[in-house]
Design a protein around this nucleic acid. Sequence first.
DNA 1: TTTTATCCGGATATTAAATGTCCGATTAAG
DNA 2: CTTAATCGGACATTTAATATCCGGATAAAA
Lengths: 162, 162
Amino acid sequence: MQLGKGVEWTTHICTMLALLREGQGLSVDALAEFFEVPSAYLSKQMQLLRRAGIVESVRGKGGGYRLARSVDEITLLDIVIAIEGPMLAFRCTEIRQNGPCGLKRKDCKRPCEIASAFAVAEQTYRDALAAKTLASIMQEAAANSTPEHMLDIANWVSEQVS
Amino acid sequence: MQLGKGVEWTTHICTMLALLREGQGLSVDALAEFFEVPSAYLSKQMQLLRRAGIVESVRGKGGGYRLARSVDEITLLDIVIAIEGPMLAFRCTEIRQNGPCGLKRKDCKRPCEIASAFAVAEQTYRDALAAKTLASIMQEAAANSTPEHMLDIANWVSEQVS
DNA sequence: TTTTATCCGGATATTAAATGTCCGATTAAG
DNA sequence: CTTAATCGGACATTTAATATCCGGATAAAA
């Protein structure tokens, strides 16, 4: 049970995009270089974010990606669902309907107790992710970082958005 | 982010093993037939449960699997960890240390805010699974099932433990 | 208008993980 | 000794994750 690398990558990237001013954008190549991740593959992950409405893209020279809404309207759950899809981690294949004592389908309108228990647990997970906004992450990051490092990043950003 | 089929299979199987009396056991072949899952692969999953101390095995003729402890001492988390391993779903590859503004390793003793947030969320998931014992699942299952179906299963079990 | 930089989407390739099978060794009952 | 069962390792297959490439669209700048 593993989340794809895209979740880690794009979450960090969202914190970068949050530093941009109105009208600015960062290209996939710049972001890939910043984090040393493969550019072409990162491009695919960014497209997933775009289709989810988390970021928006500007095509053509000088284009790039930027956030599509404010940092307090983007949660970790939004990102996970954008990258991983909406399916639950627990896959119920209804094996209670199999074998010599298998139940009839009509008697299986409600999920079994096992599937229900996993669904409840996953909901707590999602609730926790939904409660964590990009805004709160950036606030914590700022509190734990040094002024020098934040300045480094600000300088790199301004070099990119030429 | 998907849990393996072994989690669903072995959880259902634990509820079957819970029906056995002292000294009885069920063979992998019997369990595989009961749920219509591939016997050889199920055998692998059962070995994982065994190494985790959830079930115990009896080799040789007449042998099989049975629970290694009582149903209120076996949780869904025990089963998930036995099958999937102890790793967290979110893999932090420390990309904050990469690229032109990468942090030095010595400045990364604490996990970053993103990794922390995912760790907190996963802990709520695990807490929920740890709170769900096999005992509570069987109680719910009994409440939602019919006497006929429970009798069907009891009869099948007694045929197997010859 | 041409060049350049960028996203977009599809196709493809590569790698890793999940799933599934097989077999020889071991163990215990009859 | 034969039979039935787990154990563990090796292997095979299938699927998912990761990664690359390219042609097309778009827009800015030269």
